[in-house]
Amino acid sequence: MNSQMFRDSAYNGLWKQNPGLAQLLGLCPILAVSTNIVNSVSLGLATILVMAVANLAVASLRNFIPYEIRIPVFILIIAALVTVVDLGFNAYFHSLYLVLGIFIPLIVTNCIVLARVEAYAAKNDALSSTVDGILMGLGLVWVLALLGGIRELLGSGTLLSGIEMVIPGLEGFSVFGDDYPGFLIAVLPPGAFFALGCLIAGYNAINTHRAARARLKPARPGPAQGQPAAEVTQAAG
């Protein structure tokens, strides 16, 4: 995997083909878990781990998996990895495990994981597939973190609430003070839809603005038919 391929994968995963903003995959966990930053990022990191190892396993075994049964085999691999992650959360981050609840096992049915395994890992080498899984997961993580931060800040006026479940000794902090009444709809399901809609609108606006600038960018003049390139360069100078 050369540097250009890595840059393309990074751009696709983090922006162009972002799972949460462009492909709109995995909306169930995105909307349900993003009540604060800690929950959002924790589930995103678990998804990265599953995506990276699943892509590595599928890319390594793709020549040995019959085409007709590839989807059941892919789901079996993902389910085994999710089981390991689920047991690890239960053992080492039990309080966070209770908060995330069913959404860790539901990574098995997450469209992001299965779609990337089918679309990329089943057709490419192990290294490229692993990097692709990590970068796609990072694209999901930053969307989850931003969405969770917006909802937590507006809903309860805090940031990093619950961080002690991951790193003992640390505590979240109040941004607007203890007297902040909170904006209840921000932490309810409608608030998740509104916040995600605003992020998608901003994402589309940025892409539209960039496309407009690219169209307006003047093209470098080339040699006209029958005119030497040196004359065009001299005229342009």
Score class of each variant (00 low, 15 high):
residue 18 N to M: 13
residue 47 T to L: 15
residue 93 F to N: 03
residue 7 R to M: 14
residue 163 I to P: 08
residue 206 I to P: 02
residue 166 V to F: 03
residue 22 A to Q: 11
residue 100 L to T: 03
residue 44 G to F: 04
residue 150 I to S: 11
residue 227 Q to P: 02
residue 147 L to C: 08
residue 92 Y to E: 02
residue 47 T to F: 03
residue 150 I to P: 02
residue 228 P to C: 09
residue 83 T to C: 12
residue 197 G to M: 08
residue 137 G to S: 12
residue 189 P to V: 05
residue 191 G to P: 03
residue 107 I to L: 15
residue 187 V to K: 14
residue 55 N to P: 04
residue 18 N to T: 07
residue 159 L to K: 01
residue 109 T to G: 14
residue 120 Y to D: 02
residue 170 L to M: 15
residue 197 G to Q: 08
residue 130 T to I: 01
residue 98 L to D: 08
residue 117 V to L: 13
residue 137 G to V: 08
residue 91 A to W: 06
residue 167 I to K: 06
residue 168 P to C: 11
residue 51 M to C: 08
residue 131 V to C: 09
residue 1 M to S: 11
residue 166 V to W: 02
residue 174 S to W: 01
residue 93 F to W: 15
residue 205 A to S: 12
residue 121 A to N: 09
residue 59 A to D: 04
residue 24 L to I: 12
residue 2 N to F: 01
residue 37 I to T: 13
residue 74 F to Q: 12
residue 165 M to I: 00
residue 49 L to Q: 05
residue 151 R to L: 09
residue 181 P to W: 07
residue 168 P to N: 11
residue 182 G to M: 07
residue 97 Y to K: 12
residue 121 A to P: 02
residue 111 C to R: 00
residue 32 A to T: 13
residue 48 I to W: 02
residue 32 A to Q: 04
residue 77 I to S: 13
residue 193 F to P: 01
residue 144 L to H: 10
residue 91 A to H: 11
residue 17 Q to N: 15
residue 137 G to P: 01
residue 163 I to G: 11
residue 41 V to D: 08
residue 27 L to I: 15
residue 95 S to L: 08
residue 90 N to M: 09
residue 228 P to W: 08
residue 46 A to K: 04
residue 159 L to Q: 10
residue 139 G to I: 03
residue 121 A to Y: 03
residue 79 A to P: 00
residue 217 K to D: 12
residue 82 V to F: 04
residue 113 V to Q: 12
residue 121 A to S: 15
residue 7 R to V: 07
residue 200 I to W: 05
residue 194 F to M: 14
residue 15 W to A: 13
residue 144 L to M: 10
residue 62 R to V: 01
residue 190 P to H: 09
residue 198 C to S: 11
residue 209 H to N: 07
residue 88 G to S: 13
residue 70 R to I: 03
residue 185 I to S: 09
residue 183 F to K: 02
residue 156 S to R: 13
residue 232 V to R: 14
residue 152 E to R: 07
residue 4 Q to L: 09
residue 92 Y to C: 09
residue 42 S to I: 07
residue 11 Y to W: 11
residue 194 F to C: 12
residue 47 T to S: 14
residue 180 Y to L: 05
residue 100 L to Q: 05
residue 198 C to A: 15
residue 86 D to A: 04
residue 160 L to A: 12
residue 156 S to P: 01
residue 185 I to Y: 14
residue 27 L to Q: 11
residue 192 A to L: 05
residue 129 S to E: 09
residue 206 I to A: 15
residue 10 A to H: 02
residue 229 A to N: 00
residue 66 P to I: 05
residue 32 A to D: 05
residue 5 M to F: 05
